[in-house]
């Protein structure tokens, strides 16, 4: 029986391409919190199994599933039930300079 390497996984950067298909920002740079153990860390630090039948991203602390992504021919399924929240860094918003007309 063929015995390929077991327990082989990649880090969360493996999610960058598939998530870029869905989101306008690089989600691997976001900080996510694990529902199961509460660990907060970058999506890029997750342990990613797959890609087939789907990408399964697990918490590096408790091994529970944090994110799943299945790419079908015409749809992608994204399951974030193992994620409390994602803190996604964005460029700073422009600070109003007060020159706009006061509409109050």
């Amino acid at each position: 029986m063929t015995e390929p390497a077991q327990d082989s996984y990649q880090d969360g950067n493996a999610l960058a391409g598939p998530l870029r298909e869905i989101f306008a920002v690089d989600v691997t740079a976001a900080a996510g919190q694990c529902v199961h153990c509460g660990l907060t860390g970058p999506v890029a630090s997750l342990r990613v199994y797959g890609p087939a039948p789907g990408l399964v991203a697990r918490c590096p602390a408790c091994d529970e599933v944090v994110l799943r992504l299945v790419r079908g021919p015409e749809s992608v399924w994204l399951d974030l039930r193992g994620t409390v929240s994602l803190r996604i860094p964005l460029p700073a918003r422009g600070v109003p300079d007060g020159s706009e007309a006061d509409t109050t």
């Binding site: 029986m1 063929t2 390929p4 199994y49 399964v56």
Partner: peptide
């Protein structure tokens, strides 16, 4: 003819 292994987590 081989036996592929697909994994969703640790064995």
């Amino acid at each position: 003819h081989d036996f592929p292994v697909l994994s969703a987590g640790p064995t």
